[in-house]
Amino acid sequence: MRFAATLFANVDFSLGNGEMLVVTGANGSGKTTLLRIASGLSHAAHGALKWRGIAVAPFDAELRASVLYIGHATALKDEFTAEENLLALSSLHGAPGGERAAVREALGAWSLDRQSRLPARVLSQGQRRRIALARLNLIRRPLWVLDEPASAIDAADVAQLERLIASHLSTGGIAVIATHHDLAIHGARKRMLRLS
């Protein structure tokens, strides 16, 4: 993937299999904008986004089939239970694990077993974020774009997130992550990008 935009004063990076990019910077420095461009949600004022060496427009079908984007908004429906929310989101992305068993397992991995039958409306901010992150366990995509994934979750869950990212990278996945937390990903080919 290659990306350049004058908005961030000539940001240009490319990531190969197993590589991750950590985007840091002050609030309002454009981290979210950069991530939205990288996931194909927004278009860059200047420059191009390339996926597998080919320039792609926002919402390109090939990119859509390859990217898993988890933004600030959790995409949870208050009316649905944790389990229903995950079922709906994973089947929306054509995940083969759209079955209940896979969803239960993912919720268990984020220690949400007891909350699986509760409507999302009664869950706390941290629990909602963990449900959103459980999509990482369910939807298999080579490119992860994560916007502040470690916000509102506690240390044990950050460790779980780090393990998931490490395993994603070790199987040849790519990750672009905006974060304030210092994620400890062992053995990762990590690049840093500081937006100012």
């Binding site: 949600l41 919402f59 859509r64 600030h72 429906k77 929306l92 992305h93």
Partner: peptide, 14 residues
């Protein structure tokens, strides 16, 4: 739109 589902819908392979 406000809960972020629309982003996921727009990024869906469908």
């Amino acid at each position: 739109f406000s809960d972020g589902t629309l982003e996921q819908i727009a990024l869906s392979p469908y």
